[in-house]
Amino acid sequence: MSTFLFNQDNEEKFSALLERYPDKSSLMLPSLWMVQYQEGWISLDAMQFVAKKLGCSAMDVYSVASFYSMFLLQPIGTHHIQLCKTLSCMLAGAKTLQEHLQNRLGIKAGETTKDGKFTLSLVECLGSCGTSPCMRLNDDYIENLTLEKLDALLEELSK
């Protein structure tokens, strides 16, 4: 049995969404997003809760949660830096930014700093090719990145 529960807000959202789809299985992705925003990540425990909500097996939920790269199946740092590495960003110098970030944070891509403040991920095309290089900081886009811009940002976040 799972101990995870939606908070009040998410319970209400879930009920409202039920009205908007022909079948409740459509609520899989929305439910996983609600879990992730509530907890910061998606635990096996929360997956069991979602399974019960949707009337499917926990394995069905795991299968979906593990397919999509934005679903986090383990906790990460407070500031999630998602640096785009795909072609237009590469042409605009994403590799240099990656090395700079790795050096400054003392971690490799895919890792979290020891203080739990920063996680660095390399991600595929963010759709900011005309304003490359680009990264997401948690949910926000930061475009036309330069080393100076990146340093100022890290300075601000480390405070």
Binding site: R20, Y21, D23, S25, S26, L27, M28, L29, P30, L32, W33, L54, S63, V64, F67, Y68, S69, M70, F71, V123, E124, C125
Partner: peptide, 29 residues
């Protein structure tokens, strides 16, 4: 007419229309 926004979760293949529909139905894309 009702309009509902559905948020994807980072799978390029869901831009393929049938994968998108699978995803909209709550499955892997």
């Amino acid at each position: 007419l009702h309009v509902t926004v559905h948020k994807g979760a980072g799978a390029y293949i869901c831009g393929e229309k049938t994968a998108l529909l699978e995803s909209l139905e709550g499955k892997r894309g």
